[in-house]
Nucleic acid binder design. Structure first.
Length: 420
DNA sequence: TCTGGGGTCCTAGGACCC
DNA sequence: TCTGGGGTCCTAGGACCC
């Protein structure tokens, strides 16, 4: 049996935990650049505010319903996520961190009564450690655990825990679910299924897997089998690390000049490499993406990328130099650029690289001592205390973030104040 | 006015080989 | 005029997730 543990309204709840005046109020969290809504408190959902709607379209609720608005604050959410995950790992075997606010765990071998007890215990402990609420769904497969989790959220009488033991009992529930609500089925596939007369999840479950594979793909076939209770998606081993890593953002205002884009890219490279260090990985290929704003139909559009191959390295200076070269290749003047980003791929664990491969033929010496010092200083005083020279300079690229709350848990200067 | 960011997996098709 | 076919590797792009 597999459990799916999921934080309720994660971003909005993180804001509420540190700002008690937000509790019980409709609240939305905005995307980078404050463009649209990416998270909502349950009160905001009740107002009918949809996921992804433009910020402008919810302004009316500020006056009429005291809607609260926050820019997204990933330092806070990331740190709260770690606290939740650590609590789960203390209490449950084989926890797989699936996303910032979700984890799977293996509960095989426990009786139904024991599972229920354990899941309620987990809920109380997470609530006590972090102030956040989680819902838990348990079933034979990951896909069914998602379904159970959905029920745990929707039916108050379950107190946040739904354990489905028999596949049979999912029949009526699946009948009321649209195919698009099943994990792994998005808009495109859902529409194609409708064309074949498959409208709900039960019909999908009962479709012929071989036919599904032929018409769609092996991916959807697995989903069908998973809905039948046949496990196709195993828990991932925790030591398997990520394969690629990216960092990029849209600019606060459009940029036309290469020299204005450079500092933004340097900043993203530094962010990406810091994460590379954290997981003790190195990269042997890097791609820089550069694009205009696709939503502005009246300007000339351009979306390009350029790649560079390297011998495996985690050296910030080398990687930034490579990224800047790629940017030069991709850049062409005459466009209003809106976004730049870097993708590090072919990641390998540093310990799997023979030392000799860390030597470099280029003029820039790989200097572990320097990198070590940069790492220590930035870990202690903040991520960009020591940064490549081109980070400084114009800051036109920085995103708007008008409503950001303090980094309560990760920055000494922004700790919450408690009045006794 | 404003239109997120960071991932994974799979497939199709081209290049190349024998 | 006829102009193989199967395997592998790589890449770009699609679809999905949160």
């Amino acid at each position: 049996m597999i459990a799916l543990i999921d934080c309720n309204n994660f971003y909005a709840s993180c804001e509420q935990v540190f700002q008690p005046q937000l509790a019980g109020k409709p609240l939305v969290v905005l995307s980078n650049n404050d463009g649209n809504v990416i998270a909502r408190s349950s009160e905001a959902k009740k107002l009918g505010i949809g996921m992804g709607v433009l910020t402008g379209s919810v302004r009316g609720f500020v006056r009429s319903h005291e809607l609260q608005i926050r820019s997204s604050n990933y330092a806070l959410y990331g740190d709260m996520s770690s606290r939740v995950m650590e609590t789960l790992e203390e209490l449950l075997p084989n926890v797989e961190r699936y996303s910032i606010d979700e984890a799977f765990a293996d509960l095989s071998g426990l009786s139904r009564a024991r599972m229920l007890e354990l899941c309620q215990h987990v809920r109380h402990r997470v609530q006590r450690h972090t102030g956040l609420q989680v819902s838990i769904g348990v079933a034979q497969t990951k896909t069914l655990a998602k379904v159970a989790n959905r029920l745990a959220k929707r039916r108050p009488e379950l107190s946040g825990v739904c354990i489905g033991t028999e596949t049979e009992s999912f029949g009526r529930i699946l009948e009321q679910m649209e195919t698009g609500d099943v994990w792994g089925i998005g808009r495109k596939i859902s529409r194609k299924l409708t064309g074949f007369g498959i409208h709900n999840a039960k019909q999908l479950r009962d479709a012929d897997p071989v036919w599904i594979k032929k018409q769609f793909s092996v991916v959807l076939m697995r989903t069908v089998l998973e809905l039948r209770g046949e496990s196709c998606l195993k828990l991932e081993e925790p030591e398997e690390s990520r394969k690629s890593l990216m960092c990029g953002r849209s600019f606060g205002k459009p940029l036309k000049e290469l020299e204005d884009i450079r500092p933004a890219l340097t900043h993203f490279v530094q962010n990406a490499v810091t994460r590379l260090w954290k997981y003790k990985q190195a990269t042997s290929a890097l791609t820089v993406y550069l694009s205009t704003n696709r939503f502005r139909k009246n300007i000339a559009q351009r979306s390009v990328s350029a790649s560079v191959e390297l011998s495996a390295t985690d050296n910030l200076i080398l990687l930034n130099a490579a990224a800047q070269r790629a940017l030069e290749q991709a850049f062409e003047s005459g466009f209003e650029y809106h976004k730049v980003g870097v993708l590090l791929h072919d990641l390998v664990s540093v310990k799997n690289i023979p030392a000799s491969l860390f030597e470099t033929e280029s003029g820039i010496k790989n200097s572990p001592e320097l990198m070590w010092a940069v790492r220590k200083i930035n870990a202690k005083f903040g991520r960009y205390t020591v940064a490549s020279a081109s980070v400084s300079g114009s800051s036109d690229w920085r995103a708007r973030s008008k409503f950001r709350s303090p980094a309560f848990t990760t920055c000494w200067n922004e700790l919450p104040l408690v009045q006794a």
